[in-house]
Design a protein around this nucleic acid. Structure first.
Lengths: 243, 243
DNA sequence: TAGTGGTCTAGACCACATG
DNA sequence: ATGTGGTCTAGACCACTAT
């Protein structure tokens, strides 16, 4: 046997249902009732509701008290929009993109960046700089990443080319676990460096996403600044309103 | 008695704890245990966990199996960042901002906008155009909003000045309930109209947020396009990584 | 080992939408 | 009136962290 991390049952159930929805097996207007799912899968209502909560957060289903559950129209929607924003996926549009990093040495955080996130500049942060592309097309992101000094040994083993994000590699190499990510999104004029890397005019409108990756103790493990060309990149998300 | 919407107990509990956290009454490193909260508030563990789930989604607390619950460092953080992103609040930074709308008549959705969201242009959509300001300071948003034709009668009663969002008013006036909001965030050059309203150069970097407000049946009730000046506006959010 | 949060059960009552 | 999803209880066992 391979390793079996023993997924919780509600997650397994959610995965099953997600498969049925995305493959089109599930009729859009006749999603099973909670009680039906209970008997069909032999689990309690708690487990069913926990699974459905995940699917709802993923934007796959809509639920209404008294009325029932339906499959979201967008879930089967065509190729244009893919507004699926798993809490995890939102960070790893990496699946079909590739990145190439160069090592930028170690030092303190840039003063302006440190001020923005309310951290001392410090010293010993590892710096990477890279470009993310999609299928060999034009670049979609110019990225600066700064890794906490305590992870310097893991940094030496980071793969500089591929499609994994740095924080994913850190989780594997250094045994840290990211518990929360903060994002700060702003429109800025592209810097000379970014413009050159992205193939746009200097000062062209660009989307800057400043991310802080926190571990379970609220310590900042990584800080990244992604600059995206305004005409080639949009950040899609959706929000469920409280029931 | 005034109306008592009878909030669920887990929400009441969440509000109480949120108050303690934000006021600083709660010691950051000694957040009560689930079992302690059960006896202190006389509720079951389910109710406590449901409340804590809300606080966690709001970014106020961090939880770890075996270890316990702690108050997020940012929760007491200074004035600079206020990364609180209630699922609901994320849309209504309206609390301390004011808006002034003008009626733009009725008609079809602009062709380009309709194409972006995959909707037919249609006809009979009500159009508003306005500016949102913060405390009389410079404008922070130039907004175009389009309301679904079926709500035309409610539109006539919309308050054009104040700090409520249009979709909040529609919920009250037309009895519709917004179940989901999709957002599409992009950097664009400010149009002439937007630049004039926001007091920036034409073609200056601006943040465009395209929102679709969906009801429980996944019907698009409202479409809004907000243009924010890049140098005065940042969109802050945070993401909890799955446990 | 003791205590934490994570998963799960088997019930119950309620608010709400639909026929 | 029936059935839906939303709230809530009182238990239980488990995985994990800390000591």
């Amino acid at each position: 046997m391979a390793k079996t991390p023993s997924k919780p049952r509600y997650r397994q159930l959610a995965d099953d249902l997600r498969g049925e929805i995305l493959s089109g097996t599930m009729p859009a207007d006749a999603f099973p009732t909670e009680s039906v799912l209970c008997v069909r899968f032999g689990v309690s209502r708690f487990t069913v509701r926990e699974a459905l909560r995940q699917l709802q957060a993923d934007g796959l289903i809509l639920r209404r008290r008294g009325s029932g559950t339906i499959v979201s129209a967008m879930a089967r929607g065509g190729a244009l929009h893919q507004p699926l924003s798993n809490v995890g996926e939102i960070l790893q549009y990496a699946a079909d993109t590739q990145v190439t990093y160069a090592i930028g040495g170690t030092g303190g955080l840039p003063a302006k960046l440190a001020a923005d996130i309310g951290l001392p500049s410090g010293k010993g942060w590892s710096h990477f700089r890279g470009v993310r592309t999609r299928d060999g097309q034009a670049a979609i992101a110019f990225v600066d990443a700064y890794i906490h000094p305590s992870l310097a040994d893991a940094v030496a083993r980071v793969d500089l080319t591929g499609n994994a994000t740095i924080f994913q590699q850190l989780e594997r190499l250094a045994g840290v676990r990211i518990a929360r990510v903060t994002q700060d999104i702003q429109a800025i004029p592209a810097s000379r460096d970014a413009a050159a890397a992205l193939g746009v005019r200097p000062r062209a409108p660009a989307l800057r996403i400043l991310r802080c990756y926190l571990d379970a103790n609220a310590r900042v493990i990584e800080v990244s600044v992604s600059v995206h060309p305004g005409d080639r990149f949009a950040y899609a998300m959706h929000i469920e309103v409280e029931g």
